[in-house]
Design a protein around this nucleic acid. Structure first.
Lengths: 156, 156
DNA sequence: CTGTTACGGTTCCCTCAGGGAACTCAACGG
DNA sequence: CCGTTGAGTTCCCTGAGGGAACCGTAACAG
């Protein structure tokens, strides 16, 4: 096998990477999210090769992240499914990190306005259990039920 | 240019992808995070090509995501920097998504125990401004100060 | 009812990145 | 002094990404 098949690794990171880990996939999702959802629009906005874009779209549709809709005769557009919409959360965290560490003096290229409070903010991570802040330094990683291979460390 | 340089796209997703978007990078970070932090350990745990692993580690060290430490004469190990530790948050959200949509009946391969509350949970996204839940459907994306190109839509 | 666009891809070729295995070099361990 | 281990490097091969051209259908223009 040329490229390793991430979907077969027992690790939720690897499995998620199997879906959106190919180069361009997150940017394609972002574009669909903000309303740039037709083939030529996406291709021009990103400067992605048409060949690769076609592959990515097909892949994401197969994984039920996007759906393909005929909005006119032989004209198609793409939309996020529920799965896909939840994936945008991953992108939002990427943006928070990129804004903090890579945006430089120019500041972030995009801002988020939260409907609930009307304010501009970014996303923070909290615990589903207690609601408190949850970062990489606040947790222990333990083996879970889906861990099949007898790995020395829990795989993800 | 063969591979598109994501770092030059004015978008925090693209910039973050420039750092950890190459295949394997997130899994390498995850391994270092859980303590699998030496060359051969990582290589064997992931089954990654030694050549690619060497490239990824060099790249991540250059971007200040990892640091390379000599723990014995000519023996090196890798550790997350502050930047890198914050990146693990992105991985945690990937895990939450993968656990929900891809783990199947076997359940998640790993669990998180939150130090603060002692419970097993996953990460949820909240607004830095009001503390309320924040998902892709709860926000508007607006142009930010770092947006240079006159794009029709805010780039990220 | 014949051009001309526009959209949504597909096909082709070329180059470079990933995979795999072998090799290197330095430091132990006995 | 020899074998082993860690940490890479080098080599070749294949296949994925980039670029540009091409194709089929539909709507429109004249």
């Amino acid at each position: 096998m040329q490229r390793t098949n991430f979907g077969e690794i027992t690790c939720s990171i690897a499995r998620t990477m199997d879906v959106i880990g190919e180069p361009w996939s997150p940017l394609v999702l972002r574009n669909v999210y903000v309303g740039i959802n037709r083939f030529d629009q996406i291709q021009q906005n990103l400067g992605i090769s048409r060949k690769v874009l076609a592959e990515r779209l097909r892949w994401l549709v197969e994984r039920n992240v996007l759906e393909r809709r005929e909005y006119a005769a032989n004209r198609y557009e793409y939309a996020l499914t529920e799965r896909g919409t939840e994936l945008v959360g991953v992108l939002m965290v990427m943006v928070a990190w990129g804004d903090k560490w890579l945006a430089g003096e120019a500041g972030p290229p995009a801002l988020y306005r939260h409907h609930a409070c009307g304010g501009i903010g970014h996303v923070t991570l909290t615990c589903s259990n207690c609601g408190g802040p949850m970062s990489a330094t606040d947790i222990d990683v333990l083996p879970g039920p889906g861990l099949t291979a007898p790995a020395a460390e829990p795989a993800g």
